[in-house]
Write a protein that binds this DNA or RNA. Structure first.
Lengths: 205, 205
DNA sequence: CCAAAAACAGGTCAATCGTCCTGTTTATAA
DNA sequence: TTATAAACAGGACGATTGACCTGTTTTTGG
């Protein structure tokens, strides 16, 4: 009858693609629901992978979390911040551009997921020291990139008297905190206000 | 024999005390381990209460979470920030004092638990809208207190040209972000650096 | 072509979770 | 006193969790 041909269904192995699909859904889920609130079952369903495949690529949930941090969160910071800061005409302008670009993007999508790094840092820093140290490294690289860019400006004769490390620390802190409020209030307003305050030298003399 | 007297053990009902003991351990556990990572069993064990008592005072885990936020997190912000800002000689000095006091306390205890408000805001804002709105209200009150204090200074003739709301937003953002890094790095250094940057007008012109 | 390894399927399993229920004891009010 | 409600004890319950295991299929190296 109709059952005739069932000519051995093909399965195509694509280990790297499968790995990336898992990381895709894990990255999103960890951001929106958090690490602990996301079950491996959720991820299996969302990614359309079986338990065997998931366990093959990531032996434990922690291993998956570490991979998301090392490969996705770090990359996100790099793309959003490091690359743009390097390319900007100056450190200060680069910072302003990132704040503006992120605020614009948040308004476009009408939803604030928060800063990937801060989201996971808050949940995992105290839970596990391995998580904490990797996350701390990303924070440090973030600040270093901004400070280095500021030093470049200074070598070109600008920004006299500014401490690059201090400038970088305040920038990262203001962004992190502003994004924290934006997430809680589901409104990008604080991001814009803080960018203005930083630029105007508000909160200074 | 020895079994003679077992004269009906007394139990003293202390509903308010029991409630506070539960809130005590819940507040601490939610800060250190997070809301989702803390089980009601953990709390029952830590507080030495039974399931019946816990359920009597807090019907659901969410109800307990809401109580911790409304009664403990809000109070923590009030005590750490609002009260000190009101009492300070000026908004700017008050901010500096809080940063310094918190940094000193963190160094004394050698452990950074993070900002209670930000900790829960990050984990719960996207998970539940009831949580989110209460948390957003605390952020708003925090900024309002700082902005109001700045307006007082301005009525006294100081701080011309400063936008109080902008100042408040940057202050809260810088503190939140600095504490986020301090927690991740388990080091109060960022808190002090950011306080200096704010005071020096670093990151400004 | 063939063996060995890698990639994946699908399910088991003990442990743990939050909720809720049925009793018992203590406090309150009439 | 008495009855009525509040406060608490202690456990049951189904659902869910992360880890892991045994097969099968696909790929790779010789």
């Amino acid at each position: 009858m109709a059952e005739t041909r069932e000519p051995a269904r093909k399965r195509t192995n694509d280990p790297e693609g499968m790995r990336q699909r898992i990381l895709d859904v894990a990255e999103l889920a960890f951001q929106e629901r958090g690490y602990h609130a996301t079950s491996l079952g959720d991820l299996m369903h969302a990614a359309g992978v079986t338990g065997g495949a998931l366990h093959h690529h990531f032996a434990t949930k922690k291993a998956l979390g570490m991979a998301v941090i090392a490969e996705r969160v770090a990359a996100s910071v790099e793309e959003t911040w490091l690359r743009r800061i390097e390319e900007a005409p100056s450190a200060r302008e680069g910072v302003a551009q990132v704040f503006a670009a992120v605020a614009k993007e948040l308004e476009r999508q009408g939803f604030v997921r928060g800063c990937p790094l801060n989201n996971l840092a808050h949940e995992l820093s105290l839970a596990d020291d391995d998580f904490r140290m990797v996350l701390a490294g990303i924070f440090e690289a973030w600040r270093a990139a901004i400070a280095d860019r500021m030093r470049l400006d200074q070598e070109a004769g600008a920004e006299e008297g500014v401490d690059p490390d201090r400038f970088a620390a305040l920038t990262v802190a203001a962004y992190s905190g502003a994004m924290s409020m934006a997430k809680t209030e589901q409104d990008a307003a604080m991001l814009k206000v803080c960018a203005e305050a930083l630029a105007a030298g508000q909160g200074t003399r």
